[in-house]
Structures are given as C-alpha cells and as structure tokens.
C-alpha cells in the first residue's frame, strides 16, 4: 500500500501546498510569477534564474514539497527516491524560444537548447538534491492517475522506496504543475488510489 504524503499545485496565479495557499500572483509586481514565489519563499539557488519555465516550476514545487516533508532528505538513501514526471506538451514552450533564437534573434542559443528536453527538469531536481535514483519522463494526452499508480508500483518493486511524481504542463501562459510525493508509509495520509489521486489533483487537471 502507498500513500500520497505531500503535494503542491502551481497554476497561473496561485500556488498551494497540501491544499493551503502559499502564494498568489501579484499583478503589480515587476517580477515574473515564478520569481515572485522564489523571492517570497526566500529560496537561495541562483541557478534558478538560468532555468527554463519547466525546470523553474519543477524546482519550486519540489522544494515546497520538501518543506512540507523535510524528513525525506534524511530518511531515504540517495538512490531510493524515484522521479516520475509527465506532461502533454513536452518541452514545447522552450522549443519555441529556441526556434525564435535562430529564426529571429541572431543565432541558436546554447543555453536555451539544453532545456529543449522535458526530462531536464528531472536532472535539475537530481542535481540540487544529489539524488541518483530512477528517472522517467512521459508525454501523455492528459493527466492519467492510472499512469502514476502503475509506474510507482513498478519502481517500488525494483528498489525505489519513494517517488516524487509530477504533472508539469507549461505552454505559453498556461501553467498546470501538480507534484506529489508517494511513500509506502503514511499514517493518516490518503492512500494512493485513482479516486484519491483524482480528488487531490483537482477537476481542472482531470478535465483539461
């Protein structure tokens, strides 16, 4: 049996952890939305500024989950935390920026090109935390609870002890990030099943 022990939603204008609001978009701010969260949460990781939007969202949501479940850093060995992420549009948001660099801005940009793969965000999270575990990024037509159930079950049968999962969909001004932590013990936490995961994910992510 597995449990959903922490989760973070990051949308166009709100960010919440375990259902509680942690940030709301300040439209009057000069800072971009993700930067507003970064500053308000007093994160210190200058590499954040170099990341593309997918990695920034993954960074913010995974750091917020770590604050909600700080014990995971010590309770698991460095290769026991699997990363299972998926989305619909792959890295298209950054792909478009890279195309723009060589079509309209003088030359292909190497720092954009290195982010034109959806799994780079997994690398960023692994680098920051020194996590050497399993990684997987899938591109699916829509958020499918079943997909995460299946693959956490598989990875738990092959040595991973916990899984940081994510639906990380960003394209243009649409943002739909939902990260959740699956552990094999979790007193009082919702059990991992399709119904609970769908409920926690929320109706918008299921029907989009």
């Amino acid at each position: 049996m597995s449990f959903i022990t922490a989760y973070c939603h990051l949308r166009e204008n709100v960010c919440s952890v375990n259902g509680e609001l942690v940030a709301t978009l300040d439209k009057s701010s000069e800072d971009a939305w993700f930067k507003q969260i970064y500053k308000a949460q007093e994160f210190v990781y200058p590499k954040f500024y170099k990341m593309d939007t997918l990695s920034q969202a993954g960074y913010l949501a995974s750091e917020l989950i770590k604050r909600a479940a700080p014990y995971i850093v010590n309770d698991y060995a460095d290769d026991e935390i699997a990363l299972i992420f998926a989305n619909k549009s792959s890295s298209a948001d950054t792909d478009l920026r890279f195309i723009n660099s060589y079509e309209h801005n003088g030359a292909p940009s190497p720092s954009l090109f290195v982010y034109t793969l959806p799994n780079i965000v997994l690398g960023e999270i692994a680098i920051l935390n020194k996590w050497y575990g399993e990684n997987m990024f899938a591109v699916l037509p829509k958020f499918t609870p079943d997909f995460f159930l299946t693959h956490t079950q598989i990875l738990f049968s092959t040595g991973s002890k916990t899984a940081l999962c994510g639906w990380l969909e960003i394209l243009g001004d649409k943002i739909h990030a939902f990260l959740f932590l699956i552990e094999q013990a979790g007193t009082g936490k919702p059990e991992l099943n399709i119904e609970n995961l769908s409920n926690i994910a929320g109706p918008e992510i299921i029907h989009n």
Binding site: P46, N105, G106, A107, P108, S109, P110, S111, V114
Partner: peptide
C-alpha cells in the same frame, strides 16, 4: 559563477 554553457552563450554574444 558562469558555467560552460554560459561560455558558449558568450560566443553567441560576440557574433550578435
């Protein structure tokens, strides 16, 4: 604190 990718980006800068 720039890295190897930034170095390549500086090459783009010189050309641009």
């Amino acid at each position: 604190g720039l890295d190897s990718i930034d170095a390549l980006e500086l090459i783009v800068l010189l050309e641009k």
